[in-house]
Amino acid sequence: MNDVRTIVLVTGVLALLTAATGAGQFLKRHPDRGLDPAAVRTFNLRLRGWWILCTVLAAAFWLGTTATVVLFGLVSFWALREFITLTPTRKGDHRALFWVFFLFTPLHYVLVGLNRYDIFSVFLPVYATLFVLARVAVAGDYKRFLERTAKIQAGLVVCVYCLSFAPALLQIPVEGQATVGRSANFRLLFFLILLVQFADGTQYVWSRMLGRRLVAAAVSSNRTWEGLLGSAASTALLAAVLWWAAPPYQPWQAALAGLVIAVLGFAGGMTMSAIKRDRGVKDYGTLVAGHGGVLDRVDSMCFAAPVFYHLTLLVAQ
């Protein structure tokens, strides 16, 4: 935490959050300003979520690479739990699911923590896939075999494999080998999280303000082409402004990364919406009363993380 960029970033985030919280509280106390009270409440709730997110991230960052990898591992585990819960499985899938949850998911994160990109990049997509296919076959239930194995595999890839590329950012050598896992890498990870969240937020705002054409009315009733374009442009702009926080990036490269993150976050949201629509639920957290599910929070991140990881590898070369 002893370099100027990190201090500026942390101070900036704290100042922004404090200012926004002050504004939110002011609007709550003065309902006569002509603003929709429901919108103010949503805004304040969102802010609280942001405070929690920033606190947890700061704690994990402060504790180091291992703690951050473990944190993302737990998020993956919970997201996969929600994914499989809402996916109908048959009794023949039970043993395969047991190993998926208690062997493949933790082992994958151990490999991420050990920085074994050569193994973890193929461990889930190849070995876990082969295992799931064989284990379900051996269980002796051939009904809708491909459909069932594909569901488990999709859950593993989206919730575990893709999300794990976010903490894997901590292992990319930037600013020379000596600083691996240091503040530069944490800034990189924070850059990704911030842009993903920002893209989500601006997508919503642009859709509300200018939204005319829905991308796919049957899948999502609030994602519009205008929202997508607006959020891609705003996120690219923010990324270009914050380029100094993400070590290997030049401003134009950062803008490109922001654009890609916004588009992929949108793709993740649409994908999860399609799955939820098919299952007839509003969010993955319906089983956990009171708040949306973990998967609802990380769906955009799941899609953006691997591409941002590989972009960073490319730029860092």
């Binding site: 585990f77 739990r81 499989i84 009794k91 039970h94 043993r95 699911l97 047991f98 949850f101 089983l287």
Partner: peptide, 9 residues
Amino acid sequence: EFLPVPLLS
């Protein structure tokens, strides 16, 4: 079965 799968109930 004797091994649980941690789904949400």
